[in-house]
Write a protein that binds this DNA or RNA. Structure first.
Lengths: 349, 349
DNA sequence: CGGAACATGGTTAGCGCTAACACTAACTCT
DNA sequence: AGAGTTAGTGTTAGCGCTAACCATGTTCCG
């Protein structure tokens, strides 16, 4: 005994001397480390006076609990994983923002992983990586068809919810009612007197894109109208523009519903260049209600989605699961979108 | 001895039986846990044959190392923290995206914290929270004046870099050369023959906003022109619109440089409503080159910033520091912006 | 007034991993 | 040939924290 030389220098949190650990706090407060732990985690179980003493020591030393150690001891990390796709797009970015806000309010941290391509393999791998980081749960902003399938398999114990698209099934979903939104957009145009409505859709592998397209088609059929050929876009203004270029030759096109606002911007540009008036010659409805929408020329009629709200709901679903709620089939929260009528739509002719 | 009953059930990563740990792998491969660890961390130090055996076992059991344990043992986490502000804006969102991509390539995870308000206190607190999560370093996307000040204090050991704004000083910065961009925009308008250039600035507490405004003013003075009163906006299309409304009474205003594209959108709208032609009556230059910019009516002349590149540079700086590079004063990487001339600018009159 | 119930705080062990050292076998070098 | 090297692996201890169990007092009741 007394062989102090043999005491190994722990690798610790590096940084040499700077790190204050729980034992330091305990010593200063004159209690055992366990009591410090209790003060920090279930304050009611410690006498008021002791608690104060400990808290003072915490403040004085600037102590911050080491979360890695806590994770290791408890198995809970207080961190959620978010798997996202192109977080540059307005929708995903807003969603992420909403989730992060809500998570912070619930005292959770958020770590993100964006995917280059939304294959099922990538999603699985991302979730696995997050699991390795001991996240308590995962939210997938992965509005791809492929990505959501077969996710049930890897759910094994790790709570997962999806936002945005998600046809549901095994994992819970918070989403905007795409059908309602697209139907409202289409019906709005029909109600104005347009014979039919063209549609510039989003990529076929996006769940939202599919839902919007379906609802559009369904609405047209229900009204007994012709269904024009669908054009598939990629969400970018560029492809809206190209679509517009091809359209200008055809005066029978009087109404177009684009699957997002950015494509509408491109479309408006193309029509404008061709000297066609909006809404005089062509009416346009977008989707998303990006902040710019109200200030375009003309102000864009569009379908507003409350991304923030969806994000919060998703978080709530996830916390339910983490809290041990039974994994009901088909748990889902649907947020209603809102048609915002501005000046890009009007009567034909 | 033999008292199995006394063996406590470790809290562990919960989930009962499911978790495979390193010891399981070791047993299956017939080696010690340490060897497994070596295979995973410095493969060269293990004989080829042994390594294969271990890797097979890893695969067979579907083993994933528990990062919390690793963090605890090494003090390194492989996770970086990003402190952001309004990540809904195009700039910050792109930045975040760029950083995350680059981080993943470098095998780092990313956890984010967005701030409601960018006070110095909030930033400090966010960094502290991240430190508690044992991040290896922090990138601050906090283009506020206040937020960057006094950050040196808390740097204590934790590598920090800033992106976007950041006047430099103690912590390294990767940023776009705001001066060059704003100067180019202003000069472009002067070169076209405008007597002077008005400026709709961003919020005063944003570093970028300040730099753009300064460069604008400096350019005007250097050319011996009048400097119109600055108007302070908030980046939103709405305030661009309001600015435009007030402007329409004044025919002497022939050129405006707005501090971002969104405000330009609002401005264009207001001018359009008032029947003023762009660029016939008023020329406009924005800043950012958002994807829509090329498809506005008219296509917007603007200053393009390569956010992704900035993000990557920031990550490089951070990794330098983490790697133990000496903390040189005033380390910074400046990315040159690019004036993109489209159709919202032309000769006056 | 004895014993149950509570309130408070300490003890022990262990979460899963890795740094540091110890050990063995096979080589290299004067 | 014996001392040094090197490659490859095992052993020990401990990172900082908390679950579970104990050890005290304290209170309350019949």
């Amino acid at each position: 005994m007394g062989n102090d030389l043999a005491k190994p220098v722990g690798p610790g949190s590096g940084r040499g001397t700077g790190t204050v650990v729980m034992a330091d706090v305990a010593k200063l407060a004159g209690v055992s480390p366990m009591t410090v732990s209790r003060v920090l985690n279930s304050p009611t179980r410690v006498r008021r006076e002791t608690r104060m003493r400990v808290l003072d020591a915490v403040r004085e030393l600037g102590y911050r609990p080491n979360s890695a150690a806590r994770v290791l001891a408890t198995g809970r990390s207080g961190v959620l994983g978010v798997v996202g796709f192109d977080t540059t797009l307005y929708g995903p970015a807003s969603m992420l923002f909403g989730i992060e806000q809500a998570a912070r309010d619930a005292e959770y941290g958020v770590t993100i992983t964006s995917l280059a391509a939304l294959t099922q393999r990538n999603v699985t791998e991302a979730v696995d990586r997050l699991r390795g980081q001991s996240v308590d749960g995962v939210i997938i902003i992965a509005p791809h068809v492929a990505s959501v399938e077969g996710l049930g398999d890897l759910a094994s114990g790790l709570p997962i919810v999806a936002v945005g698209g998600g046809d549901g099934g095994v994992i819970p979903v918070a989403a905007v009612d795409q059908h309602a939104g697209a139907a409202a957009a289409t019906r709005h145009l029909l109600d104005l007197g347009h014979a039919t409505v063209w549609h510039l859709a989003g990529p076929t592998d996006w769940v939202e894109a599919g839902a919007r397209r379906e609802a559009w088609e369904h609405t047209l059929r229900a009204a007994g109208r012709d269904v024009p050929p669908v054009v598939i876009g990629d969400w970018s203004p560029r492809c809206g523009y190209e679509f517009g270029k091809r359209l200008t030759g055809d005066p029978s096109v009087t109404a177009v519903f684009t699957a997002n606002d950015q494509m509408a911007v491109g479309l408006i540009r193309a029509l404008h260049e061709a000297g066609r008036r909006i809404p005089g010659d062509v009416s346009i409805v977008g989707f998303d209600d990006v902040p710019e929408a109200a200030y375009l020329t003309p102000p864009l009629t569009t379908v507003g989605q409350n991304f923030g709200e969806v994000g919060r709901h998703a978080l709530r679903l996830l916390l339910e699961r983490i809290g041990g709620a039974p994994a009901e089939e088909d748990r889902r929260i649907i947020v209603e979108p809102e048609l915002v009528v501005r000046q890009s739509t009007g009567r034909p002719g």
